[in-house]
């Protein structure tokens, strides 16, 4: 085997995942550089969220490998899995806040339960993280059900970055936010990568947002990565699928299964 490229933080090799007869990931190969920001684009239902869950280990791939720092994490269990998991932070597409806990405790959860930080100290950190996503300290005492969808998304984001993980997965961080708040969140993601030195993988459908946060972009189609390049190349990728997607054209090589009259 060739000498391992230490600049590669996350690598997927031939990752496959099916649900029953339906193949979602059909051999994903992907490399993510350390301290870079990768944006995943692709149609609705193309398997972007499933791919993130395979990377973090919530879903077990049917085949292939997920390597973190060159270590095959695909079959880790118990303590080893915990060790790898503690390096991740994840924002879920649905926010997935704990609705039995107040907002501040949601944000502080990983600090209190995972790292054994005292509740008082964790609360201070939580309030600080909430401020970073544009939420005042009074929001901390509300319950998730009392928040709007966009606010929930931002709390989920604060929770994902609260423990300063080295790898952060954002599943549609700006969906459901107004354009100004979306731009603020984009900035937060960029600064998390640049200042904290995290590696970020984000899913977005919003090309303007992708241009702001991405160093690189990868497009997933029919269970494979069909294009992967830097954000500067995306406008002349020479790939008709990418072109159709970033310009949002109804006509092109990508067929959506919609019944036409």
């Amino acid at each position: 085997m060739a000498e391992r490229d230490t600049d590669i933080h996350i690598e997927l090799r031939g990752v496959r995942k099916s649900f029953g007869p339906k193949t979602v990931l059909d051999g994903i190969d992907l490399k993510v550089r350390r301290r870079s920001s990768l944006v995943i684009i692709g149609g609705s239902g193309s398997g972007k969220s499933v791919m993130l869950k395979c990377i973090i280990g919530l879903l077990h791939p049917d085949g292939g490998q997920v390597l973190i720092d060159g270590e095959d994490t695909t079959n880790l269990k118990g303590r080893d899995r915990d060790r790898v998991m503690s390096r991740f932070g994840m924002l879920f597409q649905s926010a997935a806040l704990f609705d039995s806990l107040p907002v501040w405790e949601n944000v502080a959860f990983g600090l209190i339960q995972g790292r054994g930080v005292s509740r008082r100290k964790a609360r201070d950190i939580a309030i600080e993280k909430l401020a970073q996503v544009g939420l005042g300290s009074e929001v901390g005492d509300l319950y998730p059900a009392e928040l709007s969808g966009g606010m929930q998304k931002r709390v989920g984001l604060a929770r994902a970055i609260a423990a300063s993980p080295e790898i952060i997965l954002f599943d549609e961080p700006t969906t459901g936010l107004d354009p100004i708040m979306g731009a603020i969140i984009d900035e937060l993601i960029v600064s998390t990568v640049r200042d904290v030195g995290a590696t970020a993988i984000s899913i977005t459908h919003d090309m303007a947002s992708a241009r702001r946060i991405a160093d690189e972009v990868a497009m997933i189609y029919h269970g494979k990565i069909i294009w992967h390049g830097s954000i500067d190349e995306i406008d002349h990728s020479g790939n008709p699928y990418v072109d159709q997607f970033i310009h949002g054209r109804a006509e092109g090589p990508i067929r959506m299964s919609v019944l036409k009259e």
Binding site: L58, S86, F88
Partner: peptide, 20 residues
Amino acid sequence: AEIGTMKVTEQIDALVTLST
């Protein structure tokens, strides 16, 4: 009902990602 709701709204997955 409580755990079922946590399951279908991915709260249990979220617990796992927070090392719990």
